[in-house]
Design a binder for these strands. Structure first.
Lengths: 208, 208
DNA sequence: CTATATAAAAATGTATACATTTTTCATAAG
DNA sequence: CTTATGAAAAATGTATACATTTTTATATAG
């Protein structure tokens, strides 16, 4: 497991206090490696939004920021329905079946952590998006997702939402299966909008 | 001047053949530094789209790709009018004046290179966008611009377009000055759409 | 002649050591 | 008491050296 992955996992788990400044030396010692791989990991995590630059020197763990989430979901709202609509004409039975399998796993597998649910969630949408064969658009959407990952620990707290979300997934998939791309796009827009609103509201309440 | 900047400049100038693979050792020797700063620069340039991963190891200079440009402009089309509309209510006279100054510089200063025109172009729009005070949305839009930078050398070739572009800039600014945010957004959408179409067409013809 | 296995070479990943910059803290001047 | 100054400490940037992985080229079997 690479240092990048270990560091990211520990950031996900909240092992580092938001607002604290991370020092290469400390991290190197903590993970038992030299500073070179630490530098690589920090730079990458910074470019993915897991860390923010801290003045001229060093990086800091960003605080949870409702405004950031608002922007991220605003962008996803504009880009993901577009991408899904571009994908719709290329959706084969195989791909739709794969998407259905993922939904099933989310329902049958017990005791999934928030991170695991989030991962499956993304797999579902990404599996559909990939059919569009638009690497650049896909890459940006994927990056927005990565930036959202940081907050999914929160999203799962209000767990009854999981039912709503799953129902929306089925509606989207059904629309795509009957070839109604624009309906699927509208449903996806609602899906993202709902998730975003919930998360923003939760953050506003939690970080007060 | 950092190695990152030097490398980026040389990539801009087409000093490295598209499709060629860049090796840390060669670059280190060429620029007279060790491989450590080279690694940092490569990773950053890769995350900004100036370079692409090449298999398991190494990075390559991406070829010019009309589909990439198409996606980039599609995203800008969806995000920039939104950002400008969010900025509109916060546009002070000072900011509008600054924007006007930039337009004037583009017209009066003679013999601007393609890169310089591109930089001023971005300064104009960014100056307006920043007023929205939406750091996350702004950062993504900025990143899309950076990814487009790679192609602006091409854009300038069809130089008569510069007039059209400048006229559009004035129209956008005028709409904002009279407080008509939605008209400004529509104009911006056309502005981006025009630029994108032109660039894509040019690339399709040039890379045939 | 083609394909596969293996060894040599080359490229990247990582550790240690050194250089430079930034920050901190104590001291002294106002 | 506040502020400025400067030296010490700490953190980051970079070079060199070594380890590991990947690629390439060669030789041998089919």
């Amino acid at each position: 497991m690479s240092l990048y992955q270990r560091l990211k996992r520990d950031l996900q788990r909240g092992r580092f206090a938001p607002g604290s400044v991370l020092k290469q030396t400390e991290l190197a010692e903590h993970y038992g490696v030299s500073r070179i791989p630490v530098r690589d990991a920090l730079q990458r995590l910074k470019s993915e939004g897991w860390l923010t630059g801290h003045g001229k020197r060093g990086v800091a763990v960003p605080r949870f920021d409702a405004r950031e989430v608002e922007d991220l979901y605003l962008m996803r709202l504009r880009l993901e329905p577009l991408l899904q609509e571009l994908a719709a004409p290329h959706l084969s039975g195989e791909i739709l079946g794969r998407a259905r399998d993922i939904l099933q796993r989310m329902e049958t597998e017990p005791a999934l952590t928030a991170a695991e649910i989030g991962a499956l969630n993304w797999q579902f949408h990404a599996c559909l998006y990939r059919a569009a064969d638009r690497p650049t658009l896909f890459a940006t959407v994927e990056q927005l997702h990565r930036q959202c990952e940081r907050y999914i620990g929160y999203q799962s707290r209000s767990l009854d939402y999981q039912d709503t979300s799953q129902r929306e997934h089925h509606e989207i998939l059904a629309a795509l299966e009957r070839g109604d791309a624009s309906a699927a796009a509208r449903l996806l827009e609602q899906h993202i909008g709902n998730a975003g609103r919930l998360l923003v509201d939760y953050l506003r309440a939690a970080t007060r």
